[in-house]
Structure formats: structure tokens, C-alpha cells
Nucleic acid binder design. Structure first.
Length: 280
DNA sequence: GTTTAACCCTGCACGC
DNA sequence: TGCGTGCAGGGTTAAA
């Protein structure tokens, strides 16, 4: 789950979970459920800090979801690769790999499901939150209005790194993963292996605009749901952006702009898709 | 400073 | 048919 999917989820949570009160919290008995709340020693350390609380706000920081509670504490969730929130109620059986269930006073529940368990959940006070390394070093959000192309250009010039890796570096810019880094680079006409300090100011502006456009468009389409990775929104509905992808997952298929076959290369274990004609 | 590989995990595609 | 193998992928970390 990358920025657009987390943002869609945030909006769903804001509409449907914020202002609800948790009457009971359960961490499922499986070993993997403990992996999800790995920062807490015992199930009770987690559940006791959520029970009785009311959610007041849903905030996104990079790929992290922060559900603020009425006592000031925060329920933090990172979805990893396959994590997701699902709304349900007690008549519906829990689907496999459900690790956490929060039951609401007003009826219904919120479930955290995560087959590959790369995600995690934890509760933190504002003080503790400030000390969480992963959150501390989250860089600027590309959709934040204080993100300007001038500052972006200066930051790019200060680094000597290949573009794809840099775009996926959460300490440099937050929210992009493998899919959207490829899509943004295609929209900007830049190759994955272009060096960050080699970009002209025109290229920086193109990249800056590509970031906004691709991410906003993906949010408008409610995220990317691939066949093998079943991302769905809070209510179980898939996103529609997969059909809009220009390069990701399209190795060998003709480029939608110039018909040249899309290429895929491995970059430190991760696939990078690009058009050798449109990107340079 | 930058890059690479390994690690955590499950589901799925593939080949025999 | 059924099983073993290999791989994807976010992010951190250790090593190159």
C-alpha cells in the first residue's frame, strides 16, 4: 500500500470510524497477530490502551496511518505490503489473517487483516510518538502544499543517487513505493537510473508535476488493485487505477505513448518498469 | 555517501 | 493431481 491507497483509506476512516468508540479490542490468538503488535510485549498492553477510547481524527504521515484517540494517545498503523482495514460486524466471520478486531459501541467493528504480516500496529502517547524513529525521519509529503519544486530541486541536487531508489526513500520523500515510483518517472520522462544531481530545472519541474498528477489521479481512482495483491478500501471495494498504469507490470507490452515494448530490470531485488523510448 | 543483500511472511505461478 | 521451488514486496539493517 502506497500513498494513494493509504490516503483513500484515511478518507474512509475519517468518514466512518472517526467519532466511534471502541468497547472492546481483541488481538487474535495466532502467533502472527503478535508480530503485528510487535512493539507491545503482551496483547493486553495493546488492547487496554484502545478499549474505551473514541477516535477523534485520522491522519496520514507518509505510508503511516495515525488514528488519534480522545485521551491524546494515537493508534499507529503501517500496512506493509498486504495489510488493510476492513469494516465488519459480529455476524460476519473473520477472514483468514485477521489479527486485530476493534468493536464499536455504535455497532460494527474494524478489522486489521494482513496475510504477509509486514505491517504493524501500536499505541503511543504523543511523547512516545516523537521518539519513533520511522516516523521521525519521514520526509516531506509530495502532496503537502509546502512542498515546492524549488526545494525539491535543491534536495535532488544535494544527492548523487539513482532516481528510482531516491523516490522510494521515505527519508527523502514520503509515500512512494515500487508502483508509483515507476509511474511518476514515466510521467516525467525520466529513466530509473538517472542520477538525481543531473536533472535540469526543466526536468525537476516535470518530475514535480508528475508526482502531483500521478498521485492525485491515483487517489481519484481510489488506488491500485492488482490481481495478485488484493488491495481494497475500507468497505471491500477495489481501486480502479490499475487500468491506468502506464508501465508498472507491463513488461513486453507496447508503451501506451509510443508502442515501444516496456522493459523491466531488476534493481536490488525489485522490478523497475520503464519505456526505453519515452524515458531518458 | 550510496548500494546491495538479507530478513521478515504468505500466496501464487511454475515445472516436474 | 500434487508437491517443491522461487519470487514479490516495504522497510530496516548490516555489510560492501
Amino acid at each position: 500500500m502506497e500513498l494513494p491507497e493509504v490516503e483513500v483509506m484515511r478518507r474512509d476512516l475519517e468518514k466512518d470510524v472517526v467519532s466511534r468508540k471502541v468497547t472492546s479490542a481483541e488481538v487474535r490468538p495466532s502467533k502472527n497477530a503478535m508480530r503485528i503488535i510487535r512493539r507491545h510485549g503482551k496483547r493486553k498492553d495493546f488492547t487496554s490502551r484502545v478499549e474505551g477510547r473514541k477516535f477523534t481524527k485520522a491522519e496520514r504521515r507518509g505510508k503511516y496511518m495515525l488514528l488519534h484517540m480522545d485521551n491524546g494517545e494515537v493508534l499507529v498503523t503501517h500496512f506493509g505490503m498486504s495489510g488493510q482495514f476492513v469494516r465488519g460486524n459480529k455476524r460476519q466471520a473473520l477472514q483468514p489473517h485477521t489479527h486485530v478486531v476493534l468493536t464499536f459501541q455504535q455497532g460494527g467493528d474494524l478489522r486489521y487483516v494482513d496475510p504477509r504480516t509486514f505491517g504493524e500496529m501500536f499505541v503511543a502517547t504523543p511523547d512516545e510518538l516523537g521518539k519513533v524513529k520511522e516516523l521521525q525521519h519521514i520526509a516531506i509529503d509530495p502532496l503537502d502544499h509546502v512542498f515546492t519544486w524549488q526545494a525539491f530541486g535543491a534536495a535532488l541536487a544535494q544527492r548523487a543517487s539513482k532516481m528510482k531508489q531516491l523516490l522510494m526513500d521515505q527519508k527523502f520523500i514520503s509515500g512512494l513505493g515500487n508502483i508509483y515510483s515507476d509511474e511518476v518517472l514515466f510521467a516525467a520522462g525520466l529513466r530509473h537510473d538517472r542520477m538525481s544531481d543531473s536533472l535540469s530545472s526543466q526536468e525537476v519541474r516535470r518530475l514535480y508535476r508528475a508526482l502531483q498528477e500521478v498521485l492525485q489521479e491515483a487517489i481519484r481512482y481510489r488506488g491500485t488493485t492488482l490481481d495478485d495483491e488484493a488491495y481494497v478500501d475500507l468497505f471491500g471495494k477495489p481501486g480502479e487505477f490499475a487500468s491506468e498504469l502506464k508501465v508498472y507490470g507491463r513488461a513486453g507490452l507496447p508503451c501506451r505513448r509510443c508502442r515501444t515494448p516496456i522493459q523491466m530490470v531488476k534493481i536490488s531485488g525489485r522490478g523497475a518498469y520503464f519505456c526505453p523510448q519515452c524515458q531518458s
